[in-house]
C-alpha cells in the first residue's frame, strides 16, 4: 500500500471524525472565555444528536435532500435551550459550575432516552435515510493531488466546521463583542466597571456553547452513527473539552486540536488495515487525546492557562 493510498483513507476519515469535535470545542470556547466552565458539553451533544435524528426521521419527506441541514438547525436551537438551564444555575443562582454541568449531562441522556421510548416505543431509533453523505466538492476536487486528498470523498460538514472556526476566531479576537466576552472571562469586575453587562455576556457565551454543541451532536449523529441510542455519544463531548484545553482556549488552536484528535480516533478505527500500524495496540491511539491533554495542562507541551475568572460566579460589589 503506497503513501498516497494511505493518505486517501486517513485524511477523509480524520475530517469526518474531527467535525463534531470542532463544533463542540468551539462552543466550549465561547462559554469558558466568558468565564463559565461547561462540563455539560457531552450532554448538549447528546440532546443535539437526539434532536437531529428525531427531526430527520420525522421530516425527511418534507425537506428531502435538505433534511440533515434543517435537522442541524433544530439541534442548534434545542442545544441552546438546554444550555439555558446551565446558564441560569451557574450565572444567576451561582451554582457550582462543574456540578451544574454534571447535572446537564445526567439530564440530557435521561431525557433523550425517555423521549425515544415515548416516541418510538423502543430503546433506539431507526436508522435515518438521508444523512450527510460523501461528496466530491465541485471545482476544488479537480485540483491535482490536493483536490483528490482533501476534497474528494468527503463531507461538507467538515469544511463548514473549519469555516466556523475561523469565524469564531474573528468574532472573538477582532470584534468589540469578542473583546468584551474575553474581558468578562478574565476580570469581570474590571469589565463591569467599564460598563459591560457581565451577566448578559456570560449568558450569551453559554447559549452559543449550547448551540454549537447541539450542532456538533447533530453532525455526529447524521454522519457517523445514523441513529440514536444510549451509546451514540459516549465521550465525544469530553473529548471536545480536551480539544478546548489542548487548543489553549483559542478557536484556531481548538480546531487544530480537534483535527488531531479526529486523526487519532480515525487511526484507532482503521489502524488495523494500515501496514505499519497493525502491530500497535489501538489502546495507545484511544488514550492519546486524553494523555496529551494532561501533558499540555502540566506544561510539558507549552503552558495552557484557562481564562482567569473561569469557574467563579461574579457577585457584584464583592471584592
Amino acid at each position: 500500500m503506497g503513501l498516497m493510498e494511505i493518505l486517501l483513507i486517513i485524511i477523509p476519515s480524520t475530517l469526518l471524525w474531527a467535525a463534531p469535535l470542532i463544533f463542540t470545542g468551539l462552543g466550549g470556547n465561547f462559554s469558558e472565555s466568558s468565564g463559565v466552565v461547561n462540563i455539560g458539553l457531552e450532554g448538549l451533544m447528546v440532546i443535539g444528536a437526539f434532536t437531529a435524528i428525531v427531526f430527520n426521521l420525522t421530516f425527511v419527506d418534507v425537506f428531502g435532500s435538505m433534511t440533515p441541514w434543517v435537522a442541524l438547525l433544530a439541534a442548534m436551537v434545542v442545544g441552546a435551550l438546554l444550555s439555558i438551564l446551565h446558564a441560569v444555575a451557574s450565572i444567576t443562582f451561582r451554582a457550582d459550575q462543574v456540578v451544574s454541568g454534571v447535572a446537564i449531562n445526567l439530564l440530557a441522556i435521561g431525557a433523550a432516552l425517555f423521549l425515544v421510548k415515548f416516541i418510538y416505543g423502543k430503546g433506539q431509533t431507526d436508522i435515518i435515510q438521508k444523512g450527510f453523505s460523501k461528496v466530491d466538492i465541485p471545482f476544488l476536487s479537480d485540483i491535482p493531488v490536493l483536490g483528490k486528498l482533501f476534497f474528494s470523498n468527503t463531507y461538507y460538514t467538515s469544511f463548514v466546521a473549519i469555516a466556523v472556526a475561523f469565524l469564531a476566531w474573528f468574532v472573538m479576537f477582532k470584534t468589540p463583542f469578542g473583546l468584551r466576552l474575553r474581558a468578562v472571562g478574565e476580570h469581570p469586575m474590571a469589565a463591569d466597571t467599564m460598563g459591560i453587562n457581565v451577566t448578559r455576556m456570560r449568558y450569551i457565551g453559554v447559549l452559543i456553547s449550547g448551540a454549537l454543541a447541539g450542532i456538533g451532536g447533530g453532525v455526529y449523529a447524521q454522519s457517523i452513527s445514523s441513529d440514536f441510542g444510549h451509546a451514540t455519544i459516549s465521550g465525544q463531548g469530553f473529548m471536545a473539552l480536551a480539544a478546548l484545553i489542548f487548543g489553549k482556549w483559542h478557536p484556531l488552536g481548538v480546531m487544530g486540536a480537534a483535527l488531531f484528535f479526529g486523526f487519532a480516533q480515525s487511526l484507532s478505527i482503521i489502524g488495523s488495515s494500515l501496514p505499519f500500524l497493525e502491530n500497535i495496540p489501538n489502546v495507545y491511539l484511544l488514550i492519546a487525546p486524553y494523555v496529551l491533554t494532561i501533558l499540555a495542562l502540566t506544561g510539558f507541551i507549552g503552558r495552557a492557562d484557562a481564562p482567569k475568572a473561569s469557574g467563579t460566579p461574579y457577585v457584584k460589589g464583592k471584592r
Binding site: V102, A103, L113
Partner: peptide, 17 residues
Amino acid sequence: ELVDIIIALIVFFVAAS
C-alpha cells in the same frame, strides 16, 4: 429513564440551592 431525569433534577436543584 424517568428516574434518571429525576436524579439529574435533584442534583440540579441542590446545586442551585
